[in-house]
């Protein structure tokens, strides 16, 4: 049995009175794609920065690729790839110059390696494009190429898809899966609830605490107790209030043109419908919904 690639134990970081990361513990195994889901300011970036020795922890320990993340920082950095939130690119350099610069810094000087990294992220043919002229999606790929140029076994991606359109996002996730197939372990943060679905395991962060970490399916099964209904009723606001006051409705929220209710104890579609109609609302349809990671997040946040 191989040791986990990343072992984090009670990791804590304070900035003055503010606890950015609060006693977080988790493990990541070889070849896994692990997501770290949370809104801005929940401690995702601070966690990654500590694992790369960019910030010192206030408490706790972390072992990355078998090295102490805080005392053997350079060993970790030489073997791990990192793509920071801001996409660390030089806008006034071309694609090729950016990549070969970072390559040179890692001691990778063969043109072949630079070219194959470009091919890996799908930028072949754009070598001479000036970076500032690239679209968000292509900048993202170049930033990934920079993180991959020294062929790391472990990849830290900090919000790699923010600001990128859904098509580019999906293409990016395809790339991540290809990397995972080749044995690279990936740790990726995101604030997109739907994107976390792509990960094999997801950690849910809020206010610096890791609330849960498991496969998306397990999280939904174990955390979202009850049945989910999509209620198409008019007027929506009255429906929202009525359902919120209904017994056995655990939670109700607005979901665009419908209401989303989580119910317990066998409160069925027909009973929901008749309850609303009794209050004078018109109900077009009540249909079963699937739990989402947002439901997981909101449920966890309430406890």
């Amino acid at each position: 049995m191989t040791l986990p690639i990343v072992m984090v134990d009670n990791l804590t970081r304070r900035f003055g009175d503010f606890v950015a990361v609060d006693h977080v513990s988790f493990e990541i195994n070889q070849g896994e794609v692990v997501g770290y889901l949370g809104p801005n300011g929940s401690g995702k970036t601070t966690t990654i920065r500590m694992l790369l020795g960019l910030l010192q922890p206030s408490e706790g320990q972390a072992l990355v690729l078998g090295y102490d993340a805080f005392r053997e920082t350079e060993q970790v950095r030489a073997r791990a790839g990192y793509m920071s939130q801001k996409f660390a690119l030089y806008d006034d350099l071309t694609v090729w110059e950016n990549l070969s610069f970072y390559g040179g810094v890692y001691g990778v000087r063969e043109r072949g390696r630079i070219a194959s990294t470009l091919a890996q992220v799908g930028l072949t043919g754009h070598e001479d494009d000036l970076t500032k002229a690239l679209s968000a999606g292509w900048r993202q790929r170049l930033a990934l190429g920079i993180a991959l140029v020294h062929q790391p076994r472990l990849l830290f991606l900090d919000e790699p898809t923010s600001g990128v359109d859904p098509t580019a996002r999906r293409a990016f996730w395809d790339l991540i899966y290809e990397l995972a197939e080749s044995g690279v372990t990936v740790f990726v943060t995101t604030h997109y609830m739907d994107e976390a679905e792509y990960c094999e395991r997801v950690g849910v962060m809020r206010g610096g605490r890791l609330l849960a970490m498991d496969t998306p399916a397990n999280l939904k099964r174990q955390i979202v107790k009850g049945e989910i209904w999509e209620v198409y009723a008019q007027p929506l606001e009255a429906g929202l209030e009525a359902l919120a006051r209904t017994e056995n409705v655990q939670r109700v929220s607005l979901a665009g043109d419908n209401l989303r209710a989580i119910t317990q104890n066998g409160l069925t579609a027909n009973r929901l419908k008749s309850r609303l109609e009794a209050l004078g609302l018109s109900v077009a349809e009540v249909r079963r919904g699937e739990p989402t990671l947002e439901d997981v997040f909101v449920t966890l946040a309430k406890d």
């Binding site: 960019l54 950095r77 920071s84 690119l89 890692y106």
Partner: peptide, 13 residues
């Protein structure tokens, strides 16, 4: 400012 320093720090430089 551009955030590139962060990327440089994680290299063996």
């Amino acid at each position: 400012e551009r955030g590139t320093i962060e990327q440089l720090i994680v290299t063996p430089i």
